[in-house]
Design a protein around this nucleic acid. Structure first.
Lengths: 99, 99
DNA sequence: GGGGAATATAACCAACTAGTTATGCTTGGC
DNA sequence: GCCAAGCATAACTAGTTGGTTATATTCCCC
């Protein structure tokens, strides 16, 4: 899974703020330039980022669409923990009631 | 990351339906029993499942709370793709308008 | 047009992962 | 009490991954 790697999540978080050239990312992460380029390749092949060239620079930006798959996978679990919170709330309300 | 492994996501999906003993999971996944036990250990240590013993059986069930971290991480991206959908909708509306 | 800036790719390596087989430990039923 | 069922752990292994250094490529600027 592409998002398993913390550096890659970090890269996405940085690109979420704004489009950035590779050098910027290298400066922010404590990583070599080739390492960053490799992560960007993985992200690009997963459709999570896209590039455009400006002179020698490559400007990367986020493409959030593929994250919908994860969001969809998460949906039923989200329901589950919402129910548990409701149960907790009900419990707390009941305790309140009994004082 | 714990959820990087497809078999582990599958296990969670199975446990989402209902509590299950290990043997059940082994039957559903095409995996050896030790492999399943190892995945369950990883999931347990991540707080994503919990066990209770019934005779020789170990019944596993989902504990969805840790998934909130992922959900939280996902939140800003969710906003982003919602905006893009809005933009698309606006575009389609505009096309509709001009016919 | 030559040099340096910015990035990608190649080649390599250590560490981690997910699987396997073999074995150990509890527990219930006979 | 003993055996088999059910599961965990141990020991090992092949494949993947994430990093490194070295090198290739492309483009601006003087």
């Amino acid at each position: 899974m592409v998002l398993a790697e913390p550096h890659r999540r970090r890269i996405l978080d940085l690109l979420l703020v704004q489009e950035r050239p590779v050098g910027d990312l290298v400066a922010d992460l404590a990583l070599s330039q080739p390492a960053v380029s490799k992560h960007l390749r993985v992200l690009r092949e997963a459709g999570l980022v896209e590039v455009r060239a400006v002179a020698q620079r490559r400007l990367y930006r986020v493409r959030p669409e593929p994250l919908r798959d994860i969001d969809d996978w998460l949906a039923p679990y989200r329901r589950l923990w919402a129910e548990r919170l409701d149960a907790l709330q009900a419990h707390l309300d009941a305790m309140e009631e009994s004082t």
